[in-house]
């Protein structure tokens, strides 16, 4: 058998999603962002909505997300993606809009914007990559940083007396009547990656069906700033993050109360 017999479309079992660009990703090897991007590209492709999807990438390691997926994108200021997405969604009600936000972005500087966008039930998808740290700026404490967790600004571990408590913002979001689907996922094993993809597909379908805000948290690693190997980071996440940020659906009104959601008036 020669190489050309092996590299043959008939033998294809896996391929790069068509919507992923050829640009080299700037993420650290092992970073969760790359996996989430791939899933996002697959879901948009599967739903065939690339011509009507607009992504909003605010400041954070994923600010360059627009380099990697072949759709229209808007880069946004730190924390403001939900407001930017509101502006797009309200004036383009037939389009599918999503934000892609880090935990510093969403739960700290942009806490007001995310709560109000979700509370209004803006028709959009929120992808919330929670790695418990400020990745882009070199690993400072985020509102999601666990008690005792070492970061650049908590060198002796997060101390409640000095820094307050880690914020379970997804639990807050799930309380808001504007959200129809709120879930917490991860992408550290093939099985969880498949589950996360299903959750993303469901969230985008909800946006197509105008069900208000769908919110997908992905508990993630930042092996670079956690100062761990990717494998060790995954283990640390399972052992330390999951007990506090428990994976699973927090709200799924398509199951519990499909009629409860009042669609937005434009």
């Amino acid at each position: 058998m020669e190489l050309k017999d092996i590299i043959n479309p008939n033998n294809l079992v896996y391929e790069k999603p068509k919507l992923l660009t050829e640009n080299t990703m700037h993420y650290c090897p092992g970073c969760s962002h790359g996996v989430v991007h791939k899933l996002l590209a697959e879901v948009i492709e599967d739903l065939d909505i690339q011509d009507k999807t607009i992504g909003v990438s605010p400041v954070g390691c994923a600010v360059f997300a627009y380099n990697y997926i072949e759709i229209d994108w808007q880069e946004a200021a730190h924390g403001r993606a939900p407001a930017v997405a509101t502006g797009i969604a309200r004036t383009n009600p037939d389009k599918v809009v999503f934000t892609y936000q880090g935990d510093g972005d969403l739960a700290s500087i942009g806490a007001a914007e995310i709560l109000h966008a979700c509370n209004r039930g803006e028709n959009m998808v929120v992808i919330f990559v929670n790695n418990g740290i400020y990745g882009m700026t070199g690993g400072q404490m985020a509102p999601t940083t666990l008690i005792g967790q070492v970061t650049a600004t908590t060198p002796n571990g997060r101390d409640v007396g000095r820094n307050g408590y880690p914020l379970k913002i997804t639990e807050l979001i799930a309380q808001l009547p504007g959200t129809s689907y709120v879930t917490r996922q991860s992408v550290h094993t093939p099985a969880t990656i498949r589950k996360c993809k299903k959750a993303l597909a469901k969230a985008f379908q909800a946006a197509i069906d105008k069900k208000g805000t769908s919110f997908v948290e992905v508990v993630s690693t930042c092996n670079m700033n956690w100062k761990m190997t990717p494998v060790k980071a995954n283990e640390w996440m399972v052992d330390n993050m999951f007990p506090f940020y428990q994976p699973g659906d927090l709200k799924d009104s398509s199951k519990t109360d499909p009629e409860s959601y009042t669609p937005l008036k434009n």
Partner: peptide, 30 residues
């Protein structure tokens, strides 16, 4: 005006949000 011309009017949660809503909508050609 939403009934008359289709114009959207939204009371935002802050001026920060208002101007970033403007950014989002303006970027889509509105």
């Amino acid at each position: 005006p939403w009934d008359e011309t289709g114009m959207v009017v939204l009371q935002a949660e802050s001026e920060i949000a208002s101007i970033h809503m403007i950014y989002g909508a303006a970027a889509s050609g509105k």
